[in-house]
Write a protein that binds this DNA or RNA. Structure first.
Lengths: 140, 140
DNA sequence: TATAGTTGTAACAAGATTAGTTACATCAAT
DNA sequence: ATTGATGTAACTAATCTTGTTACAACTATA
């Protein structure tokens, strides 16, 4: 199991917008060219980023713009915009309550799972779009 | 996107083996009853746990046994036994090298992604099967 | 007002994965 | 030999991902 490429595509998208929004009109076609995927995939992801208020999109005239400063957008914000499952782990639904383990497995495992997910999310929250932008500019 | 239930099923499986291996012969049918899934699902997961040398299975006569002490088995060991993808994130394959962002996106993002995955895995490694077993016994 | 470029979205397809299920060959103790 | 178990193949249904075509709706501008 892997997370879909929506996360890296969305991050790439936001980096392009941050880099070019002052110079060009950043359209789904331009983004599709940089990322090398179909423009409809980009438009769907832009829709998710827009719903999470990370970008604003000019209907009709076209173009995407950051809705926040790059240092207010973290990888966690991006991840949550494109991955909507609340829990990372799919727990088997109906353990047998007549088995001592079946009875207690949720009590024992649920908060461990939460802790693991939080560890991942906290690490994601440490990186901002502006840090990535700095890195990109250094390596251009 | 969610991880498949193999992870929680495998954890449940190992907890049952740890709890009952001294008393009963823990078969795939017994485990299927506690976890409430098809025995073939259990046999496949037991095969993965066996390949990762977490359990030993008696062919013919039947029954699964821990191959290590419960304090030597962590949630990370279990996770790696049942989730074989090396990277958690699916990176879009062919960013455009003619775009400054397309050219640098891997340089900028790859090690962030590794760090995020490591944060999750390190947290998984903190919990052992013996800790879970303690918790289960307390809540029986 | 008509045009052009763009977004939003529906619809469809191919491929992968998950989970459930049946079936059966194989194995080992008795 | 019998019995009870494991290992595994095969098939199904459901879901998700990604790519794609098509087209309605929108807005600046000529």
């Amino acid at each position: 199991m892997q997370f879909s490429s929506r996360f890296t595509i969305a991050t790439h998208t936001l980096l392009c917008i941050a880099m070019f929004q002052e110079e060009y009109k950043v359209t789904s076609n331009f983004l599709a060219g940089s990322i090398n995927v179909n423009p409809v995939v980009i438009r769907n992801i832009l829709g998710q980023l827009s719903a999470s208020e990370l970008v604003e999109i000019k209907a009709g005239v076209g173009g995407a713009y950051l809705a926040k400063s790059p240092d207010e957008i973290t990888l966690l914000d991006i991840f949550k915009a494109v991955e909507k499952e609340e829990s990372l782990f799919h727990f088997h639904e109906n353990p047998n309550p007549e088995c001592p383990i079946g009875r207690t497995i949720h009590t024992v495992l649920d908060n461990k799972i939460d802790t693991i997910q939080s560890a991942m999310e906290n690490k994601m929250a440490e990186t901002t779009l502006s840090q990535l932008l700095e890195g990109a500019k250094k390596n251009m």
